[in-house]
């Protein structure tokens, strides 16, 4: 399991009710179910991935976060997880609002477009950056609204969303992000992980 999922799992206490939005093949769901006794649900758009979840015995709903989150009642989950998908929605702001409506808390991770390798790629190669976290070409990437850790940090603040914890991930290293080190973390972190609440 990738380090990002381990970090997310560490943010969630045992016996909680969790919705994994864009749960893919259910790796994180299975881990949370087996190791933390989490009452876990998934929402996934890919039919193939939904089948993989069912084969793992996971409860998953085939659907699209932009359309299908609205069916869940307010605060019906302790945590709602959204891993590296926010930038792929037509309307990320609406999805973020929905995550925070459905979940008492939300855990959102974003690939950081200000990561130094991304900056260097654009600066020296002059082409759209391709990294381990951003593997697609400009013409076939699902990402519509790339942002940086700094952008996201300011964005949630401006929406009066409370940040409980913000973490920077660089390969296996995890560190805390705060107002004072934001510039540095924004340069050296590949991924940002935010535990938020509204």
């Amino acid at each position: 399991m990738k380090n990002e999922f381990q970090v997310i799992a560490d943010l969630i206490e045992k016996d909680k009710k969790v919705l994994d939005v864009g749960c893919a093949d259910g790796t994180l769901m299975k881990f949370l179910k087996d190791n933390k006794n989490i009452n876990i649900r998934g929402l996934e758009i890919s039919k193939k991935k939904v089948q993989e979840c069912i084969a793992k015995g996971l409860t998953v709903i085939e659907g699209n976060a932009e359309k299908d989150l609205k069916q869940f009642p307010d605060k019906s989950f302790d945590y709602v997880v959204l891993s590296q998908t926010l930038q792929a929605f037509l309307n990320p702001e609406l999805v973020l609002d929905e995550l925070l409506r459905v979940g008492k808390k939300a855990i959102v991770t974003i690939p950081n477009f200000a990561y130094w390798k991304v900056r260097f790629h654009l600066l020296f190669k002059g082409t759209m950056p391709i990294t381990k976290t951003l593997p697609d070409e400009w013409y076939n990437t699902p990402n519509l609204h790339m942002c940086t850790i700094k952008d996201f940090f300011h964005f949630v603040k401006s929406k009066d969303i409370k940040i409980f914890k913000s973490l920077a991930l660089n390969n296996l290293n995890t560190s805390i992000i705060n107002e004072s080190n934001l510039g540095i973390k924004n340069l050296f972190a590949d991924l940002g992980i935010f535990l938020i609440e509204k």
């Binding site: 039919k47 069916q71 869940f72």
Partner: peptide
């Protein structure tokens, strides 16, 4: 039906088969 079940927090999975 899925929506009605989700709105009461029931344990429901759903798949549309191609």
């Amino acid at each position: 039906i899925v929506i009605a079940l989700n709105s009461i927090g029931a344990d429901v999975g759903f798949v549309e088969i191609k």
